[in-house]
């Protein structure tokens, strides 16, 4: 089986005239379909640079990146953007939903651009389908301000899914959420992963990384550890535990 993502000896040097920053120093990484990887490391460790490279937002200075067997160094800017829209979905820490548009319209957004033209009927059906995947079909006509943080992030996940990507890239997806809502959102990620979507997420929190299958830790632009998660947390179980604890707390009060 060929990996969805194959990175070989990637370096990234930012050259701002006087100072050269060697952000990524020789990383090789294979990601196969159905993996769920947490990318960890202190700030300055190069994980954001690696994430930008994975997201085709930035080209490596040297080394190769094959995304679904396509060498991205052979593509021009527009081809790269098309590949990105086709193969990758993005989820951000701050949700990045448009305030003036409903949940449904936010999910439709990625289909408005790029080379593939989608008819508005099909667009709506696909967006509705993605909202139902994240369990928000009854909130389609709500505006972001009418949704909770967890619901907003789920809308953002639905938006990331709408072009049927191979890989979902999430940059601290639970960074703005409280712990219970984080579990809720991790539950959505685990469900998607069970259905075969490959997921990479940057996170600072160990307990969030524990919901993934594989943890990759970076320091000073290098991978310092790359281990499978031994005792993986399951969001559904964790949610039941939290709800039970909440109910017990209410009984005592």
């Amino acid at each position: 089986m060929t990996p969805v993502v194959k990175i070989t000896d990637v370096h990234k040097i930012y050259d701002s005239g006087e100072v050269k920053v060697h952000a990524v120093r020789g990383i090789s990484l294979d990601l196969y379909k159905g993996e769920m990887m947490a990318l960890m490391g202190a700030s300055g460790s190069g994980k954001s640079t690696l994430m930008n490279t994975l997201g085709c937002l930035d080209r490596p200075t040297s080394g190769t990146y094959l995304l679904d067997n396509i060498d991205i160094s052979t593509l021009d800017r527009n081809e790269l953007a098309d590949l990105r829209n086709e193969k990758l979905g993005f989820v951000f820490q701050g949700f990045n939903l448009l305030a003036r548009t409903t949940a449904l319209e936010n999910v439709e957004l990625p289909m408005l651009y790029g080379k593939r033209r989608v008819r508005s009927r099909e667009m709506q059906e696909r967006a509705m389908h993605c909202l139902s995947i994240v369990g928000l079909s009854d909130r389609a006509d709500h505006f972001p301000s009418q949704l909770s943080g967890g619901q907003q992030q789920r809308v953002a996940i639905a938006r990331a899914l709408v072009n049927q990507p191979q890989v979902l890239l999430a940059d601290e997806p639970t960074g703005n959420l409280d712990s219970k809502t984080s579990v809720e959102v991790m539950g959505v990620f685990q469900k998607l992963n069970d259905e075969g979507i490959t997921i990479v997420m940057v996170t600072h929190e160990l307990d969030i990384a524990n919901y993934c299958k594989r943890n990759l830790v970076m320091r000073d632009g290098r991978v310092v550890s790359d281990t499978p998660v031994a005792n993986r947390s399951i969001a559904e179980v964790e949610m039941k535990r939290l709800n039970a604890a909440e109910a017990a707390a209410k009984l005592i009060a």
Partner: peptide, 18 residues
């Protein structure tokens, strides 16, 4: 305009008019 949203639009390759 919120910078994150602008970047989001550029990332999705929205054109200037969009």
């Amino acid at each position: 305009t919120d910078r994150n949203s602008v970047e989001l639009f550029r990332m999705y390759r929205a054109n200037r008019l969009q």
